[in-house]
């Protein structure tokens, strides 16, 4: 039932991107997201596209995963394209269909916005495809830890996130098991009247909640027994290592940004 769900979309691997420090990857993606909004020329997008292809080869992720991840966004992209194409009325009229006229600037804008969206989703999905959720959490914890001074509980949030991530597979397994058990009792989750489906849904949710509370209680005991006491005085096994790859990547991206600035019209 959940066989096709890939947890957090992470695909283990040994590629260049997999070996990078998650902090560098997050920084790079954030930077690219900002930069992409500055691009307003065909040259710029061509360059961006080239970069996207290069990064694809560095990621080692099979294309069908990217396609699968990006598919839902396509609808949004097409919608945005037509919105712009319809409502921007600058430049020459390219062609008309019935009462609709398409202007040069409209098509241009539509294409640009669509490309932006696609690239944005593309780079973020590469980030999650090549970085394990735990590395992401660790990186975010470190990147936000300066905010602890302003009472932002970076440590606790990270602990919560990592426990949540740890229990996602458990939750999925449990959901699958309860769905199966109720299905075996004749519940139908996909077909039937609204009422029946509601009933089926309740028969899934109640056990899931009951189990979750039970698990939380057990987990609290287990953590306490192993001396968990909050963040103070705690050491960490996991270490994020900044390597040559990361420095190289950051440099390349900075150069990339500068070139894009020059290509602005």
């Amino acid at each position: 039932m959940f066989e096709n769900v890939i947890i957090g979309q992470y695909l283990p691997g040994r590629s260049y991107l997999h070996h990078m420090d998650p902090r560098a990857k997050i920084a790079a993606v954030v930077f690219l997201i900002i930069v992409i909004f500055l691009v307003n020329s065909w040259h710029g997008y061509a360059l961006f596209g080239g970069a996207a292809i290069a990064v694809y080869f560095l990621s080692g992720v099979p294309f069908r995963y990217i396609r699968k991840g990006m598919f839902p966004v396509f609808i949004l992209v097409i919608l945005t394209f037509f919105l712009h194409a319809f409502f921007t009325r600058d430049g020459e009229v390219l062609f008309s269909i019935g009462m609709f006229s398409f202007y040069e600037e409209g098509i241009r804008q539509g294409l640009f916005i669509s490309l932006r969206l696609l690239l944005l989703v593309y780079f973020t999905s590469l980030l999650t495809l090549t970085t394990s959720p735990i590395d992401l959490t660790d990186a975010l914890e470190q990147m936000f830890s300066p905010l602890e001074r302003f009472k932002f509980p970076a440590y606790d949030v990270a602990m919560m996130m990592s426990i949540a991530i740890r229990f996602i597979p458990t939750l999925l397994q449990e959901t699958e098991k309860i769905i199966k058990a109720q299905t075996a009792r004749g519940a139908d989750f996909n077909k039937g009247s609204m009422r029946d489906r509601m009933q089926a849904f309740v028969s899934l949710l109640v056990p899931l909640f009951v189990r979750a509370f039970r698990r939380a209680e057990d987990l609290a005991y287990a953590m306490e027994a192993r001396g968990y006491n909050g963040g103070e005085g705690r050491t960490k096994l996991r270490l994020l290592v900044w390597g040559w790859r990361d420095t190289l990547c950051c440099c390349l991206i900075a150069v990339f940004g500068v070139i894009l600035l020059f290509l602005r019209q």
Binding site: S132, I134, S162, R166, M223, R234, T235
Partner: peptide
């Protein structure tokens, strides 16, 4: 508690 066996073994020591 932790995401992998190695991290779970470390949990008590980290505390």
């Amino acid at each position: 508690v932790a995401p992998t066996v190695r991290d779970d073994i470390a949990f008590g020591m980290e505390n």
